[in-house]
């Protein structure tokens, strides 16, 4: 009952957040100089042409008026029309969303595997040189931001030892049988592992660049929590029962040590999604982030709005999911 209440409360605050984001974005991008109409007309267009197009996109009205029109559209599922491509914003955005989601989730999985491995190895080999090396590695991974990792990876595995693709989402010459834009997921479902391999090889470098800093954060925090947990009495008691140290770490300590990391991963995952904007650009990956940069360059106001709203929905959704998972994993909260 109480649980349901808190979920409803979270949903309400989520809606308020989204409304706030909508207002801020809408007004900010209209205050910033730059005229989308002027940018889309060929040189030599007349004043009349400009006025006609401005009216067509409703940009001649006052900003509050434009806002009301836009909001009433959004509430009916109409996010307007992109100025540059003339296509419905919703359709454009949804067509790019799967690419970004797959990239982010892949990065998250890599980060969890890498970070978890670091933390567990460091805990298992407490006090050894390996633990010290892991600490140093984590520190280095943390002090370099994701886009620099992107450049480093491009130089290393794209130029020096070219074993991974560093541009695009899939080799353009390949015929794609897909009906959705979840290429990676769909290639598995269709058992087209040849395509899966090509797509994964394209995705791996940008995903790794996004993952490295998060992996370091996970590695550090989880190792710290594990270290504290390993001193607790119930862990010691498990040791006296004849379990191996590895079992003690994985089965006794980990389930309790993982909660703080889980919360942090939720927050950091939203940062990671934010990082896709630059990383997708760097790797010419056709996702939402890349589209966002184009939209900003072209002053495509409806498209920018649509993308920002979608990002905001994803961010708040991730946070909600983390809170629910946290409650589900912690018996003390579940029963409260």
């Amino acid at each position: 009952m109480q649980f349901l209440q808190s979920v409803l409360l979270r949903l309400c605050t989520t809606l308020i957040t989204l409304a706030g984001v909508a207002v801020i974005v809408f007004f900010v991008i209209r205050v910033v100089p730059g005229n989308p109409i002027a940018m889309m007309l060929p040189p030599g267009a007349t004043e009349a042409d400009v006025a006609r197009l401005t009216a067509l996109y409703g940009l001649d009205k006052s900003i509050p008026q434009q806002f009301l029109i836009w909001v009433s559209g959004v509430l009916q599922g109409d996010f307007g029309t992109s100025i540059t491509t003339k296509q419905p914003v919703l359709q454009l955005v949804l067509s790019r969303l799967p690419a970004t989601l797959e990239l982010s989730v892949m990065a998250l999985i890599i980060a969890v595997i890498l970070g978890g491995f670091m933390a567990l190895t460091g805990t298992r080999l407490r006090g050894s040189k390996t633990e010290a090396a892991i600490d140093v590695g984590n520190g280095m991974a943390l002090s370099v931001p994701d886009f620099l990792w992107g450049l480093i990876l491009i130089l290393t595995f794209g130029v020096l030892i070219p074993i991974f693709h560093i541009s695009g989402r899939v080799t353009p010459s390949l015929p794609l049988p897909f009906t959705t834009n979840f290429y990676l997921t769909e290639s598995v479902l269709r058992l087209r592992f040849d395509l899966w391999l090509d797509i994964a090889a394209h995705m791996f470098m940008p995903a790794l660049a996004l993952a490295i800093p998060l992996a370091a954060i996970i590695g550090q925090l989880l190792k710290q929590s594990l270290k504290e947990t390993m001193h607790l009495d119930y862990v010691t008691l498990a040791r006296t029962k004849g379990y191996s140290e590895t079992h003690v770490i994985l089965r006794e300590a980990l389930p309790n040590a993982i909660l703080p990391t889980l919360t942090l991963v939720g927050v950091q995952f939203t940062f990671l999604i934010g990082g896709t904007v630059i990383i997708e650009r760097l790797f010419s990956y056709e996702g939402l982030g890349n589209m966002a940069i184009d939209a900003v360059i072209n002053r495509d106001l409806p498209l920018i709005q649509g993308i920002v709203i979608l990002f905001a929905v994803i961010f708040t959704g991730v946070n909600l999911l983390v809170d629910l998972t946290y409650a589900a994993l912690n018996p003390r909260l579940r029963h409260a």
């Binding site: 010691t236 008691l237 498990a238 006296t240 029962k241 379990y243 994993l329 912690n330 003390r332």
Partner: peptide
């Protein structure tokens, strides 16, 4: 393994000696 088979511990503090999860 040997200790697990032949010995057991009754710990000092029952509040911290059981796995909370």
């Amino acid at each position: 393994t040997l200790i697990g088979a032949k010995c057991a511990l009754i710990p000092q503090d029952p509040l911290t000696a059981l796995n909370p999860s």
